[in-house]
Design a protein around this nucleic acid. Structure first.
Lengths: 225, 225
DNA sequence: CTCTTCATGATACCGCCGTATCAACATCAT
DNA sequence: ATGATGTTGATACGGCGGTATCATGAAGAG
């Protein structure tokens, strides 16, 4: 879709004939996508244009067209890049939690990574929300695979809670999936509240901790009646 | 502020001389605002133009300009109208709950009214989310008074829960405000999940009911330890 | 009736934006 | 050198969208 020869993956041995390739296409695309993310994080996804992205990336408009033929493709790639970066960020947070973190520490790392506390997470939250809202009325965007990220998070969190229950660290009477859904839902909305200045990160953490205290209480409670 | 006589502000006594006015300004503005809401609900707020609104309202573009000089004013008014209509809708739901509904019925009516289950609530949820996201990067929109609607809801819900506690209908050990925040936050995110087709209204109601069951349990539990 | 005021409709203007095209130049492989 | 590739620049076009202008219609007051 980009070049007469190959585009970006299977050019191992065959193309060694002649081809001066000084730059990594994927790298350039990532550069431009990050420029898109930066400018969209500042001015809003709706207000970003090809020329803005080019200027932010320090390249010519022509080059943006060269690597992404259309704006739609640029937006799709930007969304993919955004989720990739966020996934990496969550992974880093988990590693920061120690070599063998307890279930609660893991869950906390997962949830807190989603709250917009610094520039990067703020931008992520804003843009991911923007894309989600757009996907409601844009079917091309809705067909994009980013939609299932929440499902993955829900399944992961459910698994963590079930494991904690099996280890006797969490309330065995709780329904793991329901609690996972609840925690993620609260985190998402409170993230937006932080974004619009309605709530502080501290208060959001307090609410989340309250529910973690409720779920992560060891031992089987005496079953009611 | 919906009188045929004056429309804005400073035309109090002087102009009472002669003035043929056949239509109610405020009524026309509401009519156009609802056209805006309809078309924005279908194609997305970002895709709405003045011409679309005019066509949807069955009037000329000039008329839209006549009542709202600028698009920004139209958007602001549309937002106001949207929240007004939603408030009325919630009120109707509360009245439907019976003449003297219990606290739990009231809370349920409040929360369920926010879930996008029919066209109207779906449109409301979509547009309110769109406005919220826009307000992050548009300070003129952020200055708009619609931001405090969530605070009002939070306070109202907190009051209801406290009343239920006082009447012995809800867990007295719970923190009313924390639970109110949690319930509203879960409702909001799950509403969006319904909007994007990720979750069914039934599953959202199930999660909410689970938490209502938790909070609305009568009598003081035997305090732990 | 006529004048004033409210209200409406058609059209034009202007700028931005996505996209396309053409020309040039640098660099590296052969 | 030759040629393919990466990069830039300028420029243009077609459309759309918000705003502005003009002229006209409808209705009550004198």
């Amino acid at each position: 879709m980009k070049r007469p020869g190959h585009d970006g993956s299977d050019d191992e041995g065959q193309r060694a004939e002649h081809m001066p390739k000084r730059v990594d296409h994927e790298e350039r695309r990532a550069q431009i996508a990050e420029a898109l993310i930066r400018v969209a994080g500042r001015r809003g996804l709706h207000a970003v244009g090809m020329r803005d992205v080019a200027a932010e990336a320090g390249v010519s408009l022509r080059l943006v067209q060269y690597y992404f033929q259309t704006k739609e493709k640029l937006l799709f790639y930007g969304l993919q890049h955004l989720t990739d970066r966020f996934t990496a960020r969550v992974g880093a947070r988990l590693r920061d939690a120690g070599p063998e973190p307890g279930p609660r520490a893991t869950v906390e790392a997962l949830l807190l990574a989603s709250l917009p506390t610094d520039e990067e997470s703020r931008t992520f939250h804003l843009l991911y929300s923007s894309y989600s809202i757009l996907s409601v009325t844009d079917e091309a965007l809705a067909a994009q695979p980013f939609i299932d990220s929440p499902d993955a998070a829900e399944n992961a969190l459910t698994g963590l809670l079930e494991r904690a229950q099996a280890e006797g660290l969490a309330d065995p009477d709780a329904d793991a999936r329901t609690e996972a859904i609840s925690l993620l839902a609260m985190t998402a909305t409170m993230g937006t509240s932080i974004l619009v200045g309605q709530r502080t990160p501290q208060s959001a953490v307090a609410v989340l901790d309250h529910h973690l205290d409720r779920v992560f209480r060891p031992g089987p409670r005496p079953p009611a009646a």
